[in-house]
Design a binder for these strands. Structure first.
Lengths: 166, 166
DNA sequence: TAAAACTTTCAATAATTACTGAAAGTTTTA
DNA sequence: TAAAACTTTCAGTAATTATTGAAAGTTTTA
């Protein structure tokens, strides 16, 4: 299997997977392309490879920069902007986790907590408060589990480094 | 805050959260409604509360049954079908995890693995194989972390039961 | 300073995804 | 057995979401 072929397949795969998890398909594809490119790419190169418009590249790349998954990078002697992706996958995972935590989990937790102030006189509130509380606990634990995993990976990676240095 | 008000707010919240994570909004809403209802509900009651069509209720309830989150339930003296949700949130989480594992993670892992058969002669393949391999490892570990969490919860729950019995 | 090179924005449009409702199908009743 | 009660299906339509592309904006060059 030729590299370019494999890369395009990976881009498709990552795009589909992303959209199943609520991430814009094109944004995931741009990310996949940059993740698997050794060199920094220009807007025109991204347009060309993915067959999307200039506006589309601009919007999606900028969003990836907001997520802290992609950086701008200048090439000497060229005044275009070039883009590179963070290549360390554990770092990528950490940043995605962090961003979703901030954007989605925290507001969710806040709302759930507020909903527990339901009129206790109503007999239906009993099950309701339990359910909402259980979801709160579940989401909280999933959050901290993924935190733990990220930290664990950090240590494992660090461990690998140390082993290499010895 | 009145119960009904809180329940409707929860339904909205869960619907929005679901759609941010790739789950059909209406399906999440039906789920939220059943989760927070003490009694089993008929198609007409769901239509009424959520303001959606008969076809919509039918499709979404059936999908929830496939996910093993909702059961049919008969009421004596009534020939309509009624629906109840599984109320144990850890069980719910386990079943959603199981289903997404089967539908999304497994195929993803399979494809990623296949992509590692890229022509090694191409110098770009080096980074590519590393990236794909790292993603494989990451996804694998996240999977087993969530497994572990579910099992842990099972034990915690069991522990609570035991404590109560003593 | 103004033209060239490049980036950004966003209204219009396209693509995707979800929902409706009525007809067809099924089960129950009498 | 046929009418009533109920469930399912799915073509058509609506709602949502994503994309284009050209005009406006910005930066650089000479």
């Amino acid at each position: 299997m030729k590299f370019t072929e494999a890369q395009l397949e990976f881009i498709q795969l990552w795009g589909n997977f992303g959209s199943q998890w609520g991430i814009n398909k094109t944004m995931a594809q741009v990310h996949a392309l940059l993740l698997t490119s050794d060199e920094a790419l220009s807007t025109d190169e991204i347009m060309e490879t993915l067959g999307i418009s200039r506006g589309g590249v601009n919007t999606n790349v900028r969003e990836l920069i907001v997520w802290n998954l992609v950086y701008k990078s200048a090439k000497p002697g060229d005044r275009k902007e070039f883009f590179v992706a963070e290549k360390d996958i554990w770092e990528v995972a950490k940043r995605i986790t962090r961003e979703r935590q901030r954007r989605e989990i925290e507001p969710l937790m806040h709302h759930l907590n507020r909903l527990k102030n339901v009129d206790e006189a109503d007999p239906q509130s009993l099950n309701f408060v339990k359910t909402v509380g259980d979801i709160e606990r579940l989401v909280g634990r999933m959050s901290s589990a993924s935190d733990t995993l990220m930290k664990l990976e950090e240590n494992t990676f660090f461990g690998t480094l140390i082993r290499k240095w010895k």
